[in-house]
Structure formats: structure tokens, C-alpha cells
Amino acid sequence: MTIKTYRQALHDTLREEMLRDENVFLMGEEIGVFEGSYKITAGLLTEFGDKRVRDTPIAEEGFTGAAIGAAMLGLRPVVEIMTINFSLLALDQIVNHAAKIYGMFGGQAKVPLVIRTPGGGGQQLGATHSQNIELYYAFVPGMKVVAPSTPADAKALLLAAIRDDDPVLFLENLALYNTKGDVPDDDTPAEIGKAKITREGHDLTLIGYSRMAYVARNIAESLAESEGLDIEVIDLMSLRPLDRATLVESVKKTHAAVVLEDDWLTYGIGAEIAATISDGAFDYLDAPVRRVAMAEVPMPYSKNLESAAMPTNDDVVNAIFQTLEAVGRRLKKVGQSHD
């Protein structure tokens, strides 16, 4: 084990995979000379040269499509799209080609492509630069979408994504890049399509992915301390395929769920999770599944409006308390203080 930042874990994994397999190469805007907008690829151009670390023009549709084509011939491109907002310019190639080629041609060609891209809001970047639109990709059959929340998972899922023969959208998050954690030294890939219970508990199931999985863990820990609550936390890890069984089994045990998402509520990722729980654990639910998501507005620039549009820790805690209230469960510590 080595303690690393999420950023460093990504960097090191890219490097190791490039050393392991010469078919692995990187493409994207500003990843070489500039060393990456978020410095994930720092030093790799110097080490591997511009054949394998390719700075592209600003042409998301062009270079993403080119990566798909290269993947059809057996290369394993890892494309960086500067932020997920700009992936919209490549949406056509991803949805109409990356996700379709294997099926549409009867399994004759594979597309072993990875698209790495960060989401994240809260940096005052305004309406077009603060979106979390991973749903667009998670919606599409043929795509795989993974979203690690720790440095260790970033490594394990990136290994899995690069070695996978299908197109994988690898969701990173601006707010996670500097977070630290233990990272195993061996290279065991994660299993795409599996969620992870990151904290066991009985009172309520708290579900998140990417930054919100991180938030969920922290809040569960602090409520354990301050309120004596025993919350189970699930990190989805994979948005498509979705590990429905883990969700359902957890709620059968806890009887209540709160879903945290950084996207918009209406038709968001949380809607699919709530539907899954109501479908698979209907008889076990003691309260409606609650969702905490962004306000449904184009993100304003002004700091206080932006903060008002984004879920805060208080929003999450309130949602948890209100759900427990709906269940009718007395909160130990708080209950005591009222005696």
C-alpha cells in the first residue's frame, strides 16, 4: 500500500498500463506540453514521446471519433476530454459509434476505448462548465460507465477500463483530484458492474457515486459519532451496468434509503436507483426513497447562487433525518437530549 492522491493514482496507473501494453496510448487536449489541464498526464510526454501522448487540436468530435476508429483496429486509446461538459461535442461519436459498433456489426469489431473525463461543479465556472451529465452515457446500451471515489478505486477501475474490450466512460471529479488514500501496489483490476459497500450499517442506506460517494462516507462517519447513527454506505462505482442486487439487499436490511447525486433530480441517476429499490425491496421500505440532487437551473456564476443550487452537507443530513423521521425511528442521542 502507498498513500497517494486520486490524481497520482490515475497518473501512475496510466503510466504502468502504457509500460505494460504498447497498444495503450493517450490522446486529448493539452495532455502533453501543458501536462494536462488537471496535471494527470504530467511527465508522460517526456517519458513516452508524442507518438503515445498525443496533443490534439480542439476537436472533441474529431479526436474521440479517431480514437474509436483506432480502437476498431486493436489499439487501446485512452482519451482525455478536459471536462465532461466538452464531451457533448463528441456525444455523437460516442453514442452513435463507440456504443453501437460491436452490436450493429454482429460482434465483428470491438471498441476497447477509455474516455477519461472529470465532472464537478462548485468552482464558479457557470452554466456550461459545471454540469454532471454522466447520465447521458449511462443511458446508452453498449457503454460502460464507471465513477471511482477513492484513489484505490481510481486505480482498480482504470486498470479494468483499459483492459476491457468495450468503450468505457471513466468519470473523474475535480473535487476529488487532491483527496488522498491508500492505494494497493499490485495491479488487480476492479470488476466493472459491481457496487461496493463502503460502510456497513443498519439504520439507513446512503447511496452515492464519485464525489457524492465520498460525501456519503464522511457524513455517515460523522453521524455515527454525533448521533450514534449506523448508516450503510454504498458507492455505486459503476453506473452502467448498475449493481441492482447490492442496492436491493442493503435496503432489505435497512428499510430506508437516501440517494446523493451531483446531477439534476428529474430523470437523474437517482431516479433509476429509487426505481430499482421500489421494484426490488418494495415490501421492505419503511419510507419513500429520498433523493438529494442539484437545483434544476443552468448553474449561475455568482457564488451564493451557485452554493444554493448545489447539495450541501446540511441538505444531506436533513434528508437523512427526515427519512428516519418518516420511518418513525427515534434518534438515540438526540432523543436522549430531549429526555
Binding site: 440532487a293 450541501t312 427526515q322 423521521e325 418518516a326 427515534r330 432523543g335
Partner: peptide
């Protein structure tokens, strides 16, 4: 972001502060 879709209804009428 923190608002529920519908008003939260307490099930068993137990007061929880």
C-alpha cells in the same frame, strides 16, 4: 437541493427531534 419531492410524512407518529 435538500427539498423533498413531496412533504415527508412521519409513519408511526413518533416524535423525533
Amino acid at each position: 437541493p435538500g427539498d423533498p419531492l413531496f412533504p415527508v410524512v412521519a409513519r408511526y407518529n413518533v416524535e423525533v427531534a
